[in-house]
């Protein structure tokens, strides 16, 4: 607390204090919730009912509208987690460890969505639920990386050490992700089965692409919403002894 910090804008300090973050994000929640609801429902209806079916894959192609956004955010989420961990290690900001802890299960859930939808898409397209395709394999490795961070965090009983250890692991994972992806890619070209090819049109027709953009935006909003909700719940838990949280709990009750 007595640590002298480098000069930072005021919002940084507000974000850095649990109470500041909590009160700052309260008005954001309804907007984020509304935006993600509208975008996700709109995008899903558009993608399911109104986007044209793919010429080769038919209607199974409609899974792309959840598969790609979730895969997208699963990967981005790892970097969110690692950057939060790095900020925590460098600036000793407690809140960023909270953010890192909040990002881990969220990212793992999104990775799981992309794996499951990928398998369900694979069955009608390739005739099998699972192929050792480069991207699927990379996603699986990403899932393991998330599980490792989560498991390590839970294994520590001391909360502060847990945050730091998980941050170190997340950073090591970040340094390795490009290497893992490149090597899996290379491994795949080595073993590529001739019969199976990932059919991705080089350029999607706009009528197919627009709902995808809507869904990606919707997933982004939902990601931000859940991340903030997780952080707020964790703040309540960690600050449960402090005055403002007790106050808050009572005022909500009345």
């Amino acid at each position: 607390m007595a640590r002298t910090r480098p000069i930072m804008p005021a919002w940084f300090h507000r974000l850095g204090s649990p109470k500041g973050f909590y009160s700052m994000t309260t008005p954001w929640l309804p907007w984020l919730a509304a935006a993600s609801l509208v975008l996700l429902i709109g995008g899903a209806v558009w993608g399911l009912g109104f986007a044209p079916a793919d010429a080769k894959q038919g209607n199974s192609f409609r899974i792309i509208y959840i598969h790609v956004p979730s895969a997208f955010l699963a990967l981005a989420g790892y970097y969110v987690m690692a950057v939060a961990g790095a900020i925590g290690l460098i600036w000793r900001m407690k809140l960023s460890f909270v953010a890192m802890k909040a990002a881990a299960p969220l990212g793992a859930a999104l990775t799981l969505i992309s794996l499951v939808t990928g398998a369900l898409w694979g069955k009608p397209t390739w005739g099998t639920y699972w192929v050792w395709d480069a991207r699927i394999t990379s996603m699986l490795v990403l899932f393991f990386l998330y599980l490792g961070v989560i498991a390590l965090h839970y294994a520590y009983t001391n909360g502060e050490a847990a945050g730091k250890a998980a941050a170190v692991l997340a950073l090591v994972g970040t340094a390795n992700i490009p290497i893992i992806y490149k090597s899996v890619d290379w491994w795949y070209t080595l073993h590529q089965p001739a019969t199976i090819k990932l059919t991705e049109a080089p350029s999607m027709h706009p009528s197919m692409f627009q709902p995808l953009l809507v869904m990606i935006a919707g997933f982004y909003c939902l990601y931000a919403l859940v991340l903030i909700l997780n952080i707020r719940a964790e703040i309540l838990h960690r600050e449960r002894g402090s005055h403002w949280v007790v106050e808050l709990a009572r005022s909500r009750r009345s």
Partner: peptide, 26 residues
């Protein structure tokens, strides 16, 4: 969906369940 219905709907249902859980649990 021309025979692809089960796969498409199962994907969306699973995603919906996970997303609802993600929002509800915190």
């Amino acid at each position: 969906m021309g025979g692809h219905g089960p796969f498409v709907w199962l994907s969306y249902l699973f995603t919906l369940m996970v997303l609802v859980w993600l929002v509800a649990s915190p």
